[in-house]
Amino acid sequence: MINVILVDDQEIVREGLKMILSLDNQINILGEAENGKHLLEILPKQIPDVILMDIRMPIMDGVEATRLIKEKYPNIKVIILTTFNEDEYIFKGLQNGAAGYILKDSGIDDIINAIKTAYNGNVLLNPEVAKKVVKALTNNVIANENINSEVSSKLKLLTPREMDVTKLIADGKSNKFICEALFLTEGTVKNYVTRILEKLELNSRTELALYMKKVSL
């Protein structure tokens, strides 16, 4: 059973999500909150597997809430609920450790699949929005024009095995999948991921996946 907390300042949105998610017997709505501050207040008593988080909310938005949650509860997966015109918020949310994002007008199957994907440790990169996020990442992280050259230069810091792991992460694969594909233990994969992020000066596997997309821009 996947325990989920819904966070949105609009009750009608939360009710709609509850109706949608109730259609899947693998998902349990553990609780709900109307903003980031409210969420942080209930988390000590209700620890979910996945949080479905709106970006724009009063008192504390989803970006700041994601940062605080990942600092204190690193194992909780945060999925950002967004619209097409919130590029900067999406980018900051991913930097803060969100597992990915999904559009608010997504279909039932897409929302359910997003929760299961995040729960299984995979990265959520909606192709239509990913282009905007990669552009924002490019503008914020790399100032020079020769983007591919700089990315390629940093990638040379990785060992062949680290590069194998990096490519699988970029494809959205979970640690479990990587273990089986490369015949490694889970602990070894975790160590690889930590070293890769340190070498590339990145904060999360989601940011790594976006970083790798710049190679093919």
Rank of each mutant, 00 (worst) to 15 (best):
D110V: 07
L6I: 01
K116F: 01
L39T: 00
L124A: 05
N85E: 15
L155M: 05
R67N: 14
K131Y: 09
K77W: 09
G93Q: 12
E128Q: 12
E150G: 00
T206M: 10
T188F: 09
P48I: 15
P44D: 01
P58I: 04
S204G: 03
C179M: 07
Y192T: 07
D105M: 04
G36K: 00
L43P: 05
I80F: 15
E71Y: 15
S174Q: 08
T194V: 14
A130H: 07
K70M: 14
S152D: 09
L103T: 04
V7S: 00
V129E: 08
N175I: 13
K45M: 04
F183C: 06
R14I: 11
N203Y: 13
S204N: 10
I42T: 00
E34W: 12
N140I: 02
L168S: 10
S174E: 07
N148E: 10
P127Q: 09
L184M: 05
V129T: 15
A209D: 06
E86Q: 14
E88M: 06
G97M: 12
Y192M: 06
V215D: 10
L40G: 10
T206P: 02
A118Y: 02
L124E: 05
L21R: 00
K18P: 03
L125P: 07
K131G: 14
K131R: 11
E150Y: 08
N120I: 00
E198C: 04
I112T: 12
E64Q: 11
E41R: 02
D8Y: 08
G187F: 08
E11T: 14
